[in-house]
């Protein structure tokens, strides 16, 4: 009986959560006439792909995608590599002030971005980097943020130190230990950082909004916003354009799901 109730709650809940998404898909596959006549139908009467090429050609979406992929891949790679370095430093070495620095790093998670936003903007402006990808990518080369460093460090701490010592005795350097032992054993944590980083960069709106001016430099998020401003009344095309923005994150999540959940779990984010 109890199981049955849990099932009902789970099904009811997931319907509520998934319906808006399914509605986006359905609308993207409908003709303009059908949307006007019967906007809520979740299964289109005459499914059509026409909205996708129409939206794609209305604005330079190809260049939006290229820009987003570039920013995302560069930031993600930088975040994983430099984040691993920093996490390794915090996880494996004793030095004066380490714990204070670690606490400082954690507390930056509580800092609202608005406090640094304006001076950082002025720095990039001074460097002539407005309307370039530098302000969106270069910060990722500095450890990539407290959250991912924390996650990696927690995971690195669970790897037995004896393994490090065995490699040291065999003459390996710390550098070698990090890349040939620690990182390969940290698949779930690395995957989790990759997924979070990908979603974070793919999704990023205020950075591109502040820094990118010319449409040929737009990323998907502000490109989509431009599309809405320009052709917002064509719901079918708008939803098709939205879906092009949504699908990569969902595909990545499904591909990485197994590791991802495990990474969150094992990193002690459960507060234990």
């Amino acid at each position: 009986m109890k199981r049955f109730l849990v099932w009902i709650a789970l099904i009811g809940g997931s319907v509520f959560f998934v319906i808006p998404f399914l509605w986006t898909v359905a609308t993207a596959l409908k003709t303009q006439e059908e949307i006007a006549k019967d906007p809520t139908r979740l299964v289109p009467m005459q499914p059509t792909w026409e909205n996708f090429p129409a939206a794609w050609n209305a604005l330079p979406f190809l260049s939006f995608v290229e820009n987003t992929v570039f920013v995302t891949l560069v930031s993600m790679t930088a975040q994983v590599i430099t984040g691993s370095l920093v996490a390794y430093g915090f996880a494996r070495f004793q030095f004066k002030g380490r714990d204070l620095l670690f606490m400082t790093m954690i507390s930056t998670m509580l800092l609202p971005g608005q406090v640094t936003m304006i001076p950082v903007y002025l720095i990039w402006r001074q460097l002539g980097a407005i309307d370039t990808f530098a302000p969106l990518t270069i910060p990722a080369f500095f450890g990539g943020g407290a959250f991912s460093i924390f996650l990696l460090r927690q995971f690195f701490m669970t790897i037995p130190r004896e393994l490090d010592e065995a490699m040291l005795i065999d003459g390996a350097s710390y550098w070698g230990i990090l890349w040939r032992l620690i990182v390969p054993l940290s698949g779930p944590a690395i995957t989790t950082v990759v997924v979070f980083s990908f979603i974070g960069n793919w999704d990023s709106f205020d950075g591109p909004l502040i820094y990118l001016n010319s449409p040929e430099n737009y990323t998907m998020s502000i490109g989509l916003r431009l599309f809405q401003d320009t052709f917002g009344t064509n719901m079918g095309q708008l939803m098709a354009a939205s879906l092009m923005h949504i699908m990569p994150t969902i595909i990545l999540f499904f591909a990485a799901q197994k590791y991802f959940i495990k990474g969150v779990h094992l990193s002690g984010l459960g507060g234990r």
Binding site: P20, S221, S242, L243, T249, F253, Q257, I261
Partner: peptide
């Protein structure tokens, strides 16, 4: 678990438009 997670995979601009 996946179904409940899907909304947070939708990028914020797309979610706002939706």
């Amino acid at each position: 678990r996946t179904l409940f997670y899907i909304p947070s995979l939708v990028p914020s601009v797309a979610a706002a438009i939706l």
